[in-house]
C-alpha cells in the first residue's frame, strides 16, 4: 500500500514537473509549482518527516506561490521566446542530472537502521531527550535546543534575506515609494509628477507655516 502511494505521488510529481517545463503561461506554471510543492509535502509525510512536510506545504505551496504571483503581476504572465537554442542547456541539465543520480548510488538505503546517520548523535537525541529536554517531539528538541545555534543562524539568514530583498527592490527605475531613513516615503516618479507634486507640497508647506496664520494664532491665543 505504501509503495502504491509512493508510486502515485512520484508519477504525479513527474507529470507536474514536465507540465511546468511545457507550460508557456507563467501563471499556470506558478500554480503547477505550488502543486509540485504540495506533492513533495505528501512524499515527506509518507517518509514520516511531518515537520518538513509542514514547512514545505506552508512555504512552498503557500507563501512562495503568492510571492511568485506578485512578481508576475509586475513582469507580465507570458514567457518570452528564448533567443538561444536549447541544445547546450539541455546537455548541461542532463549531465548534472546524471551526476546526481550517480551520487545517489552510494547513498545507504532509506530507513536502514545501520545508516551512519543513525549511529552518530541520533541515538542520544532519541533516548535522552525525554529526560534532558522533557518534550515529546524530538524534532523540536533537536531544532531549538540541541541544535539551537543552527536555528539561530537560520533565523538570521531569513532576516538577512529580507534586508537583501528590500535593498534590491528599492533600486532601479523608481516606483513612487522608496525606503529611506527607516520609513517609506513617497517620491515623484517622473518629472511631470515631480513638478506638480512639488508645487502642491510647497503650497501646503507655505500654508502651514505662513506668518499670517501664526500671527492669527498668536492674537487668538
Amino acid at each position: 500500500m505504501v509503495e502504491f502511494v509512493d508510486i502515485a505521488l512520484l508519477v504525479l510529481l513527474g507529470i507536474t514537473a514536465f507540465s511546468i517545463i511545457r507550460q508557456k503561461n507563467l501563471f499556470a506554471a506558478v500554480m503547477l509549482a505550488g502543486i509540485y510543492s504540495l506533492l513533495s509535502a505528501g512524499l515527506f509525510v509518507v517518509m514520516d518527516a511531518v515537520d518538513v512536510a509542514f514547512t514545505e506545504a506552508a512555504v512552498g505551496a503557500g507563501i512562495s506561490t503568492i510571492l511568485m504571483l506578485g512578481t508576475l503581476a509586475l513582469v507580465g504572465h507570458s514567457e518570452h521566446q528564448p533567443q538561444h537554442r536549447p541544445i547546450l542547456p539541455l546537455f548541461v541539465v542532463i549531465l548534472t542530472g546524471a551526476v546526481l543520480v550517480y551520487g545517489t548510488l552510494d547513498i545507504p538505503p532509506f530507513g536502514d537502521a545501520s545508516n551512519p546517520a543513525h549511529h552518530h548523535v541520533a541515538p542520544h537525541y532519541l533516548e535522552e531527550s525525554e529526560h534532558e529536554i522533557g518534550i515529546p517531539n524530538v524534532v523540536t528538541s533537536v531544532l531549538a535546543s540541541y541544535r539551537g545555534y543552527d536555528t539561530m543562524g537560520e533565523t538570521t539568514v531569513i532576516f538577512a534575506a529580507l534586508v537583501g530583498v528590500l535593498l534590491l527592490l528599492s533600486l532601479g527605475p523608481r516606483p513612487r515609494r522608496v525606503f529611506s531613513n527607516g520609513r517609506w516615503i513617497t517620491v515623484a516618479a517622473s518629472e511631470k509628477d515631480a513638478s506638480e507634486g512639488g508645487a502642491e507640497e510647497a503650497q501646503e508647506d507655505t500654508l502651514q507655516i505662513s506668518p499670517e496664520e501664526k500671527t492669527l494664532g498668536d492674537t487668538n491665543g
Binding site: L67, L74, I133, T155, F159, L169
Partner: peptide
C-alpha cells in the same frame, strides 16, 4: 528556553514574510 526561542523564530519569520510581500505587492508595474 525553547518557548522563547520559538517565539523569536515566529516573530522574525512572520515579519520577514509580510515585509517581503509588502515589498513585492507595493511595487508598481
Amino acid at each position: 528556553g525553547i518557548l522563547l526561542v520559538e517565539l523569536g523564530v515566529l516573530i522574525t519569520v512572520f515579519g520577514v514574510m509580510v515585509a517581503v510581500f509588502y515589498a513585492f505587492a507595493g511595487r508598481r508595474r
